[in-house]
Amino acid sequence: MNSGYALSLSDISCTFISRDNPGQRYTAVADTTLNIAPGEFVSVVGPTGCGKSTLLNIGAGLLEPSSGTVTVHGEKLVGINKRAGYMFQADALMPWKKALDNVIAGLLFRGVEIPIAREHGIAWLARVGLGGFEDRYPHQLSGGMRKRVAMAQTLILDPDIILMDEPFSALDVQTRQLMENELLELWSEKKKAVLFITHDLDEAIALSDRVIVLASGPATHPIGEFPIDLERPRDVAEIRNQPHFTELHSKIWDVLRDEVLKGYVQHKNIVEERTQ
C-alpha cells in the first residue's frame, strides 16, 4: 500500500439504492482513483450533480463506498476521517452557539480544556478577520462572516487534510476572492493537503496545484488531470489576467465543456420527465 499520500481513494464506486424502491439504483461514482500528496492543493471540477460531493463525503468517512478503499496517510479509513477537516457548502454552524463557541466546539469535543480552547478560538477569530465578533450568534453575521467562522472552526483543529465542498459558492464575487486569498495564505503557512470541490473552473485553477475534471453523472469518474504550474504566492484576482492562466483555462475547458453540456441535457430530461 502506498503510504506517500495524505489521502488516497482507490477504485472507488458508490451506488445508492432507493429506499422506497430497492430495484432502483443510482451509481454516483464509478472506478475512481484519486491521490493527494501531503501539502498538495487539488481541485475537482465537474458539472453540477455529477457526484463531486459524494466523492468528498467518502474521503471524509461520512459515506462508505460500495467498493474500493480509502487510505489516510497509509492507513485504511474506518468511520469518520479524524485527520480531515470539512468545510461544507451549506451553513453548518450551530445557530445556538456564539461565534467563539462554534469555533472552539471541535476542541471541546476533543477534550481540550475550556480556557485554553477559548484562547485559541479568540486568536483564530482574529486571524480570519473577526476579532471582536466572539459573542455574535450566526444569525447576526453576514454570509461571508459565517464562512470565516466555519473556516476558523475547521482549521483550529489543525487537520492534515482539508476537504472543501464549494465553500464559497454562496458568496458574492468580491467577498469570494477575498476569502480565496485568505485561504491560500492560511494554507501556505501550514501546507496541508486540500481537496477542493467546485464547479467554477476559474476558482479551481487560481487555487490549485492540480485540477481534476470529472465526467457528468451518473457513474462519474475522472476524465482529465491538469497540473497547474502557476507561480505562488498567487493573488486570485490578478492571476486571471496572466496569459498562462488563460491557456490552462481553455485547455481544461475543452474537456469540461462536453461534460457540462451532457450534464445539462440529462438534467433537462430529468426535469421534463418529472413534469410530464
Binding site: 463525503n57 471524509a60 461520512l62 469518520i80 476521517n81 479524524k82 480531515a84 477537516g85 470539512y86 461544507f88 451549506a90 451553513d91 453548518a92 454552524l93 450551530m94 445556538w96 452557539k97 466546539a105 471541535g106 469535543f109 476533543r110 472552526q153 475547521t154 483543529l157
Partner: peptide, 25 residues
Amino acid sequence: SPTLLANARMLGAGRNDLLRHVYLP
C-alpha cells in the same frame, strides 16, 4: 439539518456531544 450533524461529527463529536450540543438545543 444533516449538514449540521455531519459538521459536528467531522469536528469530532461523539454520541453524547451530539446529544448535548446538537439534538438537545
